[in-house]
Amino acid sequence: MAPPAALPPRIRAIAFITPSNAPILVRSYAHQNELQCHYIAHMSLDVIEERAPKATDCYLGHLYSMEDVAVYGYITATRVKIVIALALADAVVKDGDIIAIFKALHTAYYQSLANPFLQLSQPVGAEGQDYSLAVLAGGGKWKGLRMRVDAIRKAVGAADDD
């Protein structure tokens, strides 16, 4: 039997951020408090801002490591920023895998966003020039996206079963 030493790292936190740097969804899976996840997201924004103008690729790579997490960033063509924090582990993390996870997250995002009933609580025309407001309105009770993100996290975790 293969040694069970190198399990794939777990996802500790996932954050979606609008083009104007407002949080859409910050999801934490570790025992640490929510605040630290916001902290991680804030820090990654600085790094993303630094790298994004130069990069032509959506995937921004490993942003930084802090304490026990490694943080990866992704910016879509529509400038939505996605950040994931992985627990530091011995296993090799392949960029291709991370990109696949990011793509899945982006898919989850637009699928949830396209829900025609999402913005019914929002007065018509209130979104104005920036759609981030409409997105934010769903932030707290945005169940669809939260469920999809959780499903992805679960799927990633499922890798250590095989």
Partner: peptide, 17 residues
Amino acid sequence: MNISTASLASPAVLSLT
């Protein structure tokens, strides 16, 4: 399967991707 490069992207993730 080679566990030392345990893949993060399981088929389940790829199907979501």
